[in-house]
């Protein structure tokens, strides 16, 4: 890490002011630091100043309310999300996703905000010496290079996969995110928070350089809902998803009243599969319906040299999730 100075944040206003007064990358935010410190150690980022968000009051914790649903502060740790009784019971997909993240040590300090805003793990990106497109260089090395862990959907022109496990799970539940900037706060669907590289190859979300994420809201759990997070990996832990599926179903017996299917590990942003949802909604879920949903989910997949297996994998995970809903 290069030297930097450190500010313990005292208020959201102070944070957004500090950010507004600086150039991109000069002042950065840190929460648990489990992602950011890796970037600093690799000299991928060399900020002059780090703002410690952990000292911000009121941004940590989980609130459950019958009418408004679930509110999770951006500073809430992944471990607290994973073990929260209500989340485990009514929002299983989120608890399962949280429990699948990294290791106990990282879950104990890594935060929700940091998880959503974490940077790509692409091995070209994480190598200081390689100046790829995402870092302002000319090309995406994954295109002609080693692409086992890269995107099969929505890639062009950069083929990272979004590393977050919480994001697909929360999007599948229709969560929204509250953002505060110099002009005040705004709330948007978490789904709209993430962007594809075609829109901006340098960032993974719409957050402006002077904004911060303060909380995530999840609508109240609907009755007869079943939800799952299926994550395929090579190694038990720590390992990012080769592919993952966050699936939320409203079931009427074996019939799927509505389905929400969001893929992780396969695209530069959490990937909502409207195709798979359509294939399931209103149907009696059986083997062939679930297979169709899987096939539809990867209809548009365009694998690189080394990641065609992800097409099969994703397809199978989607079908599996559907069958789990029916059983």
């Amino acid at each position: 890490m290069e030297k930097f100075s450190y500010v313990n944040a005292t208020s959201v206003e102070q944070v957004t002011t500090l950010l507004s007064d600086s150039r991109w990358g000069e002042v950065m935010l840190v929460a648990g630091g489990t992602d950011l410190l890796g970037e600093l150690k690799e000299y991928i980022e060399t900020p002059k100043t780090l703002i410690n968000l952990k000292t911000l009051p009121g941004m940590e914790g989980i609130k459950v309310d019958e009418t408004t649903g679930l509110t999770i502060g951006a500073l809430t740790t992944v471990a607290d999300i994973a073990k929260h009784p209500t989340i485990r019971h009514h929002y299983a997909v989120v608890a399962e996703a949280a429990g699948s993240i990294a290791t106990p040590q990282i879950r104990n300090v890594g935060t929700l905000g940091g998880n959503l805003c974490q940077r790509p793990r692409c091995w070209y990106y994480r190598d200081e010496a390689t100046n790829c497109l995402k870092k302002g260089g000319d090309i995406c090395f994954a295109v002609d290079g080693l692409s086992k862990y890269h995107a099969i959907l929505g890639g062009d022109p950069v083929y990272i996969v979004h590393p977050s496990d919480l994001a697909p799970a929360l999007i599948a539940l229709g969560a929204s995110v509250k953002i505060v900037g110099p002009e005040g706060e705004k709330t948007m669907l978490l789904e709209d928070f993430f962007t594809l590289p075609a829109a901006n190859p340098f960032r993974e979300n719409v957050l402006q350089s002077n904004e911060i994420v303060v909380e995530v809201q999840v609508p109240p759990a609907k009755p007869n809902t079943k939800s799952f997070y299926l994550k395929a990996r090579e190694k038990g832990a720590p390992d990012f998803a080769l592919a993952s599926v966050a699936a939320v179903f409203e079931m009427d017996g074996k019939t799927c009243a509505s389905a929400s299917i969001v893929l992780g590990g396969v695209a530069p942003a959490p990937w909502r599969s409207k195709e798979a949802e359509a294939a399931l909604t209103g149907k009696m879920i059986d083997d062939s319906v679930s297979r169709q949903a899987g096939a539809d989910a990867v209809k548009d997949a365009q694998p690189l040299n080394d990641n065609a297996y992800k097409v099969t994998l994703t397809q199978n995970l989607v079908s599996r999730a559907a069958m789990m809903a029916a059983s």
């Binding site: 150039r23 991109w24 100046n131 870092k135």
Partner: peptide
């Protein structure tokens, strides 16, 4: 703000 990334 403009992307003012250093070239590593």
């Amino acid at each position: 703000p403009d992307k003012e990334k250093k070239q590593g």
